[in-house]
Lab assay of single mutants.
Amino acid sequence: QVATSTVRILGMTCQSCVKSIEDRISNLKGIISMKVSLEQGSATVKYVPSVVCLQQVCHQIGDMGFEASIAE
């Protein structure tokens, strides 16, 4: 089973930030795809909930120095 959710990301300033986040999160087990939008300050994450949760994704992004939260 696959889920798609949006994560809000604060602190991104350039495409390099976007690429860094996409590269790191895409390597997590259970992540199918991730598309980060600098303009919208968010990311669309396609993932397998039984393998990885959005809290883990937000935590990983937080470790990179950005502020991440699950969009309502």
Results as ranks from 00 to 15, higher is better:
I9G: 02
D23V: 11
S42K: 12
V18F: 03
I32Y: 03
V2Y: 14
M64P: 02
V18Y: 02
K29V: 11
V18Q: 05
V18P: 12
E72H: 14
S37I: 07
C14E: 05
S26E: 06
C17R: 02
S33F: 08
F66G: 02
T4R: 07
D63A: 14
P49V: 07
R24P: 02
D23S: 11
C53K: 11
L38I: 06
Y47M: 02
L28H: 02
Q55K: 10
S5K: 07
Q60T: 14
L28T: 06
D23E: 13
S16D: 14
S37K: 05
I61L: 11
S42W: 08
S50Q: 07
G30K: 03
V51C: 05
V57E: 03
H59F: 11
V36C: 08
A68L: 06
F66N: 01
V52E: 01
K19G: 05
V18A: 15
S37A: 06
V51R: 04
S37V: 06
F66L: 03
C58N: 09
S50L: 08
C17M: 06
E72L: 10
T13V: 12
L10C: 08
Q55E: 11
D23A: 10
V45Q: 01
T44N: 07
Q60I: 15
H59S: 14
E72F: 09
K35A: 08
E67L: 10
I21S: 02
V2S: 12
G11H: 04
S5N: 10
V51H: 04
S5Y: 05
K35H: 12
M12K: 04
D23P: 00
E39I: 10
E39W: 08
S16V: 11
Q60A: 15
Q40E: 11
I32P: 00
M34K: 00
M12D: 04
M12W: 05
S20W: 07
Q1W: 10
V36Q: 00
V7E: 04
S69M: 11
M12L: 07
G62K: 15
G41Y: 06
S16M: 13
Q40I: 08
V52L: 08
S69P: 03
V7M: 13
F66H: 01
K19F: 08
K19H: 09
C58R: 10
Q40W: 12
C17K: 03
A43E: 03
A3R: 09
S42M: 13
V57R: 03
I25N: 01
L54T: 01
M12Y: 02
G65C: 05
S37F: 09
V52K: 00
Q55F: 11
M34D: 00
Q55N: 08
L28V: 08
C53P: 08
I31Q: 00
G30A: 04
Q40R: 13
T6L: 12
G30L: 08
I25L: 06
E39T: 10
